[in-house]
């Protein structure tokens, strides 16, 4: 358990809080982005060791004690997928706005507090 894992858990909690408490679709999109960032930092921090070096070889000597390259590879692809899905979500939000004229979930449903 290092400081970065703690940070990622904080960001995950903030993202879940935003998803539950906000009623505006755009704010939910921002909360989902924060949540995704927290998950990415959590995955990389699992492979982190305190005295590790970056996983890149320099040809004459062998690498000693690198950090784990596998979570980094996973997160690298996850970030690129994340921008695609966020763009898809924002396109759907634009479509909802054109159809209903509002992005507030509570006014759509007509429920009271």
């Amino acid at each position: 358990m290092n400081l970065y894992t703690f940070t990622s858990l904080l960001l995950i909690a903030i993202g879940v809080y935003g998803l539950l408490s906000q009623r505006h679709l755009f704010k939910m999109l921002v909360s989902l982005s924060v949540l995704e960032l927290g998950v990415n930092i959590l995955l990389v921090s699992i492979g982190y060791s305190k005295d590790g070096v970056a996983p890149i070889l320099t040809p004459p000597e062998q690498i000693i004690n690198p950090v784990d390259p596998l979570p980094q590879a996973l997160v690298l692809t996850a970030i690129v997928i994340g921008v695609g899905t966020t763009a898809l979500m924002s396109a759907i939000i634009v479509k909802i706005y054109k159809r209903t004229g509002t992005l507030d979930l509570s006014s759509n449903r007509g429920e009271d507090e």
Binding site: N40, Y48, G52, A54, I79, V80, V83, S90, A91, I93
Partner: peptide
């Protein structure tokens, strides 16, 4: 700081460049 330079490059280019632009375009459109 976590010795992941590849991920850092992707995050800096995407998270603060492309994603911000896409969200701002969406915000302007709604």
């Amino acid at each position: 700081l976590m010795r992941a330079p590849d991920v850092a490059m992707a995050e800096a280019a995407i998270g603060s460049g492309l994603l911000t632009a896409i969200l701002l375009f969406t915000l302007k459109r709604v």
